[in-house]
Nucleic acid binder design. Structure first.
Length: 460
RNA sequence: UCCCCAGUAGCUCAGUUGGCAGAGCAGAUGGCUGUUAACCAUCGGGUCCGCGGUUCGAGUCCGUGCUGGGGAGCCA
């Protein structure tokens, strides 16, 4: 008999005879003549209640079922006599696939996130993490749908890169050299004998590659893993995370900001509409005000704020910040939080940053002081998107690289794109996990990614 | 990397001024009940994170190390 997923059964309007489910026991309550067994198969948050009578031939074994055991149940699905569920299965047959023993660490009660982090291999079996990873999957699908519906081409940009890119953080080296026995040439490592014949790293951004494809296919995006070897120890940083990076030809900063806003709104609304049941567990146990926060994100117009104006607001605020603010200085977390959480109380897009604070590829504005960069800030998380219009003018790009001491030879192919058919283009990077944190209210990035990689932590 | 906080039963936590190590849940056993974080009774369960110190006496005070969390920096 083929199994039916519990999600399907629960959605049914009518009883069904001879159904088969497979899953894991969440909890069991024994009666004198039968047991209530709650089975979860991961297809949805809800369990299926199974009634196993003592007339079943293996009832003695069934009484030994514990949280975590795996079973196959066949029987009729009938209306439940009890409250709390619409349907239940009267088991004709309950096959025990495997039993858990007393050492199974998950109990039928709430565990702390910190405890479950040490059990990253088992935590998807809990209600909260099951719901979270179903939402993560839906969000991933929605990203592709959003772009596909708008005619964007999906590009698989490389994970291993020969560039040390835009200096966006520290890089993980990729090598096949024998690290226990390094051959040095004049005191230096000889990369010509390494796998690629030169230094290689894990990517910190697919952007430069994506730009090349935007300048051929128009609107493109990448969505893949990204690696930063920064020694960051915060709830918002991971060494391996996923980033969504659209890149658009014939698009200025205006269009870039418009797309970023449209995208965050779309993805938020998508999850609100398609993951209602799974979201409930977060509104109940993680953040009671989650739904109103998400409505706010999905429906309000985002503030567009030039960097210079943001400085004025911060100076006028009368707040005493730990870091004083002035034109030319980077906005600190406390400043971003004040703007998005207290002053505007909704997402804020800050744009036109001083050029000294931003990388070489961002387009120089006519004031010669600022670049066409933008950051999208959201309450609770801070920066969720960073992007810019790219510098398409070869001469200005060259002088910017000179200012920043970057080797133009290494970027020869990037420069080529400005020599041949260069056009204005723009793009941004969205932190996928940070968006997931926003959408679920989960406050630690380690809890929205299956097996988090952070400094000193790679057990799984 | 810097600053702050925490570490007590399998889990979540309490532990007063330095004076016998505790509760709920989980587990085992028995009972009861169309139950639903089921309920009731009984039982078992401890390197109080490690090391050193102060003291008649340290879970509690001091020093130090480790681990975890929060904040900062960096950024998505």
């Amino acid at each position: 008999m083929n199994r039916t997923k519990i999600l399907r059964l629960i959605q049914s309007d009518t009883p069904m005879n001879a159904v088969c489910i497979t899953g894991w026991v969440r909890t069991k309550r024994d009666s004198k003549e039968f047991s209530f067994i709650e089975v979860n198969d991961g297809s949805c948050l809800k369990n299926m209640q199974v009634i196993a009578g003592n007339t079943l031939s293996n009832y003695d074994d069934i009484k030994r079922l514990k949280t975590g055991s795996a079973v196959t149940v066949t029987g009729n699905m009938v209306a439940s006599q009890g409250k709390g569920q619409k349907w239940e299965i009267q088991a004709d047959r309950l096959h025990i696939i495997s039993l858990t023993d007393d050492s199974y660490p998950l109990q039928k009660k709430r565990h702390s996130d910190e405890f479950l982090r040490d059990l990253a291999h088992l935590r998807p079996r809990t209600n909260k993490y099951g719901a979270l990873f179903r939402i993560r999957s839906e969000l991933s699908y929605a990203v592709h749908k959003f772009f596909r519906d708008r005619g964007f081409i999906h590009i698989h940009t490389p994970i291993i890169t020969g560039l040390d890119c835009e200096g966006a953080g520290e890089l993980f080296k990729v090598t096949t050299l024998d690290l226990e026995n390094l051959q040095k040439k004049c005191g230096k490592i000889d990369y010509t004998v390494d796998f690629f014949g030169k230094e290689a790293n894990l990517t910190v951004s697919g952007q430069l590659s994506a730009e090349m494809f935007a300048l051929a296919l128009g609107d493109v995006y990448t969505f893949g893993p990204t690696f930063r070897a920064e020694n960051s120890n915060t709830r918002r940083h991971a060494a391996e995370f996923w980033m969504v990076e659209p890149e658009m030809a014939f698009c200025d900063l205006e269009g870039d900001m418009a797309l970023s806003e449209e995208m965050v709104k779309y993805l938020t609304a998508y999850i609100l509409n398609t993951c209602q049941e799974d979201l409930e567990i977060f509104t109940k146990f993680v953040d009671k005000s989650l739904l109103s926060t998400l409505e706010n994100i999905a429906n309000s117009d985002y503030i567009r704020l030039p960097y210079e104006t943001s400085i004025e607001i911060l100076k006028r605020s009368g707040k005493s910040f730990e870091y004083p603010i002035d034109f030319g200085k980077d906005l600190q977390s406390e400043h971003e939080r004040y703007l998005t959480e207290q002053y505007f109380k909704k997402p804020v897009i800050i744009f036109n940053f001083p050029k000294e604070t931003k990388p070489f590829y961002m387009r120089l504005n006519d004031d010669l002081k600022t670049v066409a960069a933008m950051d999208v800030l959201v309450p609770g998380i801070g920066e969720i998107i960073g992007g810019s219009q790219r510098e398409e003018r070869l001469d200005i790009l060259e002088s910017r690289m000179q200012e920043m001491n970057l080797s133009q030879e290494k970027y020869w192919w990037y420069m080529d794109s400005r020599k041949f058919g260069s056009v204005p283009h723009s793009g941004f990077g969205l932190g996928f996990e940070r968006l997931l944190m926003l959408l679920t209210g989960v406050s630690n990035i380690r809890d929205v990614i299956p097996f988090p990689r952070t400094p000193n932590s790679i057990e799984f």
